[in-house]
Design a protein around this nucleic acid. Sequence first.
DNA 1: CTGTTAGCGCGTTCAC
DNA 2: GTGAACGCGCTAACAG
Lengths: 338, 338
Amino acid sequence: MRPRLEDVAAHAGLSAKTVSRVLNNEPNVRESTRRRVAVSIEALDYLPNPSARSLAANRSFIVALLYDNPSPSYVMEVQTGVLQVCDSYSYGMMAQPIDSSSADLVSRVAKLISSRRPDGLVLTPPITEHPGVIAELRTRDIPFTCISPREPDTFSGVALDETAASCDMVEHLVSLGHTSIAHIIGHPRHGGSELRLKGYAEGLARSGLLYRESLVLQGQFSYQSGVECAHRFLIAENRPTAIFAANDDMAAGVISTALEMGLRIPDDLSVCGFDDTPISRQVWPSITTIHQPCLDMGRIAATELFKIIHHNVKANMVLANYSLCVRASTGKPSTSGR
Amino acid sequence: MRPRLEDVAAHAGLSAKTVSRVLNNEPNVRESTRRRVAVSIEALDYLPNPSARSLAANRSFIVALLYDNPSPSYVMEVQTGVLQVCDSYSYGMMAQPIDSSSADLVSRVAKLISSRRPDGLVLTPPITEHPGVIAELRTRDIPFTCISPREPDTFSGVALDETAASCDMVEHLVSLGHTSIAHIIGHPRHGGSELRLKGYAEGLARSGLLYRESLVLQGQFSYQSGVECAHRFLIAENRPTAIFAANDDMAAGVISTALEMGLRIPDDLSVCGFDDTPISRQVWPSITTIHQPCLDMGRIAATELFKIIHHNVKANMVLANYSLCVRASTGKPSTSGR
DNA sequence: CTGTTAGCGCGTTCAC
DNA sequence: GTGAACGCGCTAACAG
């Protein structure tokens, strides 16, 4: 059988409680005692039983990551980041995919919490948008942090200045000489879509360009929606010289459509995306995009969460850094063209 | 406070043990009693405390998914499948990324098992290849199943007939008229690479074509390795008319390189991949590939695992179905060309 | 078929 | 600074 706390205590010639104190980094233990315990733990190869700990302490030592995102790379990166931090706190992480459009989302989340009893949650878009879920968590007073919520001011966690990033992207296009820049909006239920659209508009304004309805279409963040919107833009009389899609998947759709139509990228059309997902590096030409540090964001969200769980400190909303990745899909508009 | 088992028992006018029996679907309970318990559980909105259950039953009710795979979509799909099955058994799942090339892999796995104490494990490539890990699990007598192990006969879990699939792919190319078909091998530490190479060779043999060393290069499953191998193939005197990459990422690299060089796909070069990952649908032209049902494979691996954990039944090696997805990147070789 | 007793391994309360 | 007794909520072994 495995050694128990009691065995460690016997080995060290101490009481179980003292060993427990050492294990949980509690104060009021002499440093020399601490050492003796550490030696015995090592000697017996002792590891605490998580169930017993949880039962007695009335905590699960588990964090839940809630997601409902079609992008596997996004979820994987965030998950990896959260896991890293959880590991460092000897916490477990449970990945919880959940259909955020289902009518009984709130009761599902409630059930999930009741059955698994996580000590805290990390929420990702678009679950961060759901007022019912937020209300439920706040009512139950269960710690949580958000990644990229629509209104960062009212949450703890991490966000990106997506508006500024989009603005930068537009200015990049303008600096290349583009004046007819189209935008494909992201999924309507993701706060990011709105912020990126806002940044697009701001970028135009700053450059003295007009925001034109005809140059903006609603997408869904999916490759297919990129294809469809691109088609509509590109068969138009006066097609834009650049298309800024609100994410990389849609940008890839734009590229496919353009190539299919025989256009050259970036000579006939510049294309850019957002997120810096693997696809932006794996299509030809490679896509100019905004790097979103998902791994870091997962780490930060978890770190902020542990401030609440562990240190009983108030968590903050941290702003992560983005960067513009200029690649092969953007260039000067051809003077000939059209 | 939450209701406990005892409260349910009191409400139903029964003993705690009887309620416990119902909860765990044990036999020797009258059907009418079962109903009474169910009613009380419903009435009190009772949910068992997982820690207490685990402690008393000496089981964690948790399954661990071990992975070390660069493809986020692969891991996500498998994870989703495993999660679905775990949910249906009221089990939790812990995702456990682990560096399979680290020297102390075995001790890491051992530690992971000792600290989290999962009731079973699902192993994915390339961890399935590691004899030390397998030995450790067998020594500890902890249930596990494998997804796509190199030698399916000696494991339980799920596999694909990757050799047959590769063979089919080659025959597809041959049927289009190709006679000069190159292959890019996958990562050397993945069993699949070997099987796919074998299928490539078989496909050639069946079609009466010669296996030529000069038409086979070692890749790494990465986009970049696809780019490099493609370059070497395409600058050759007698370049192949088709390149079969052992996965989609490498195929995407081949496509980029070919387009960069001004080749038309599939007119000047046919390209195909393996896995049917999202990228195969999101590049232009879309990639002909083999569909690997990762979600199902995750489900199957978990289902087989629960045969051992729950039913104490022997698990099997299940063969999942693949299918050939013919898309836009393969076609007849142009008679003009070259 | 059902109930009783004991204990899983740890943290908490309070005493010293 | 340290220790003893108790209880967390549930299941196992046995009795009936």
